[in-house]
Design a protein around this nucleic acid. Structure first.
Lengths: 107, 107
DNA sequence: GAGTGCGGGAATACATTGTAGACTAGATGA
DNA sequence: TCATCTAGTCTACAATGTATTCCCGCACTC
């Protein structure tokens, strides 16, 4: 039994990585989240969360040669570990259970 | 545009209240969450969160005469405000968007 | 009718997450 | 070679999540 749930933002970051599949570069993931969630995500917030989740074993990453024509430092390519997916499943299950039957109330 | 999302736990509390409809007494809501989420919720965590959400205008409450045969202080009967529902909808929308297409990955 | 156990709740304190802002460093091109 | 663009890092602080401990009033019991 997990000590606690995934935070809301952590969850979004994890899902953003999965959405991008094999091209989960930091920036792309960030854009994915901004698009889906409809709000800005600062770099600081984003990478801090990522590093903390790495410490918890939910994500891993490796550097990749800069792909873009322009640009700077080696990019980080992320992926979600099995533990991360497990945590995601647990969070989703709990939320779905609570949402059940509330569709009309919530519109 | 909300400054930030609802936390995971806040969301659960709000949903728990809605689930209980007109009988959203503190204790009942807490049990509801424990059942759905499959983990314990300490009283402290629960009421602290509730009070903070009251400050943000997401919930309101009034006291109700003690209904139970046994025991104590007037209970608090909660309800979610329109602002609370709006916040809930926004969180759900963002999460659903991110979950889209990941069912097989997440099993 | 004082002592005690119990059901709710409040207060307090601390750990974990969320977020912003300023800062670094490699690549490009005028 | 310097301005500037991109991707990422660091630091500090605010907001949320959580456990612990305390309080209060009822009703039971003797």
């Amino acid at each position: 039994m997990p000590k606690s749930f995934l935070g809301e933002f952590e969850q979004m970051v994890l899902l953003g990585i999965l959405q991008r599949g094999d091209t989960a570069y930091g920036i792309d993931v960030r854009k994915e989240i901004e698009k889906s969630a409809g709000r800005e995500v600062s770099r600081g917030a984003f990478y801090t969360t990522l590093d903390r989740m790495e410490a918890k074993g939910y994500v891993k990453w490796k550097t990749a040669a800069p792909v873009t024509g322009r640009g700077g430092m080696p990019q980080r390519l992320f992926r979600v570990t099995p533990a991360g997916k497990r945590a995601l499943r647990a969070s989703r299950k709990a939320l779905l259970t609570l949402w059940r039957g509330l569709d009309e109330v919530l519109g």
